[in-house]
Design a binder for these strands. Structure first.
Lengths: 237, 237
DNA sequence: TAGTGGTCTAGACCACCCT
DNA sequence: GGGTGGTCTAGACCACTAC
């Protein structure tokens, strides 16, 4: 037997996963190459095919290999890395930094939304929506400004909630489950009122998050979060 | 038998996954509640426990439920949503928008990096690194400005590569496999030279990506990408 | 200590789809 | 056609940890 193909009896899927990743990283299997089939690898590692399958599926999920029935498994040419990051509720994000959390409602009114918001929420022009503007603080420092529209049809009960206690962010997460949504990151210049709210200078570059969430076809809420200067989104690859 | 607990003989893990998600979304199992054990659900669905396990593991991976041995499975109180987005190579990102890709090297020199870069690359102060400054275009429009430092110890062969043909971005992805890295998003103001490069106005808010990649303990490259105005990172939840 | 989730096995059937 | 990955099953053992 080829010494490189000894039955090493690696038997946990994590160990196999690590070993396969090593072979990919050391270019033992180069981009574009075919990997051995699950059956062959199972024989090499002296384990069940399901175990190899679990390890390889994990690699496929992270975008390192491409698997197709009959065609086999090949190393992706341009390893498109897939980054995953958590979207915590704002209170937890602030507390995780070791700061005390507080928030303040700047305005709350039931009003006709502008056309763009009405469009994303799927509301006809004549329907009112709940418009909330809040500021979240980390200790005494402004952390993020929230401009939120809530679809009253999707979440009728929010009208009776005291949002000064629980933030809208947290209340919605807990009471208005969503099935899917869209999340957008961009940069924006601070205009004068925004700068004053966030304790920034006019013209500062701020990170902006736009988020829309749906429960099936029904839009729940559309929110724009504008973070104070220095905010960064960090993730590991 | 309770009509709601009929053995419906759902037998694929996807179907079970969907059904469980429905129950979560309809608050049949509310945040903080315990879910039935795998064994119980397997009985309900008339399938093997492994099938239920696969469905529930998927839910746990996306952060909807929390599973612990002996403790059981419970609905997460604040469903921290986990977003995943792809990090394509720049050429593909541009081409995916239907634009023609090109790039231009602004400068390329082997030089002593500034302390911050030397620190992140783990280089001693006396070692030189390859400093590359490039501009990528979508059709004729500046798309992103790349300021990159490459660790010559990790990637010695890059010295002989004609980076005017293949971009450093693409060459590195294909030839310098990395095991892990860090990815940071922030916002920055365009200074005058940057504004001119990116066809922006001085003071514009720009989205900035900082990325460091490693092969085991060895840093490969540290890069800052500054995108032209209007660039957004979009992902679905 | 008992019950839960995590995992492995050996076997099986099937959907897909290509050199 | 035939080989590949995708999945399910029934059973088993184990690690963890709440009680």
């Amino acid at each position: 037997m080829d010494p490189g193909e000894q039955k090493t009896a690696i038997s946990t899927w994590q160990a196999i996963h690590t070993e396969l990743r090593r072979r990919l990283s050391e270019r033992i299997w180069a981009p574009g190459d075919y990997l051995p089939s699950e059956t062959q690898l199972a024989a090499e590692f002296s384990c069940a095919r399901a175990t190899v399958n679990r390890a390889m599926r994990e690699l496929a999920d992270s975008g390192l290999i491409d698997r197709r029935r009959k065609a086999g498994t090949r190393v992706v040419k341009n390893p498109v890395r897939r980054a995953t990051f958590d979207i915590p509720i704002i209170r937890e994000e602030i507390e995780r930094r070791g700061a005390r959390w507080s928030h303040q409602i700047l305005s709350r009114q039931l009003t006709r939304p502008p056309p763009t918001i009405a469009g994303t929420l799927g509301l006809s022009r004549s329907v009112s929506a709940l418009h909330l503007r809040s500021l979240y603080y980390a200790d005494r420092n402004p952390f993020v400004y929230e401009d939120r529209w809530i679809n009253p049809i999707a979440v009728p009960t929010i009208a009776n909630v005291d949002l000064a206690q629980v933030s809208a962010n947290e209340w919605l997460v807990q009471h208005a489950p969503f099935t899917h949504g869209e999340y957008t990151l961009s940069a924006a210049k601070a205009d004068a009122p925004l700068a004053e709210l966030l304790n920034a200078a006019t013209g500062d570059a701020l990170l902006v998050v736009d988020r829309i969430t749906f429960n099936e076809a029904l839009a729940i809420t559309s929110v724009r979060l504008t973070y104070a200067p220095g905010y960064r989104v960090v993730t590991t690859l």
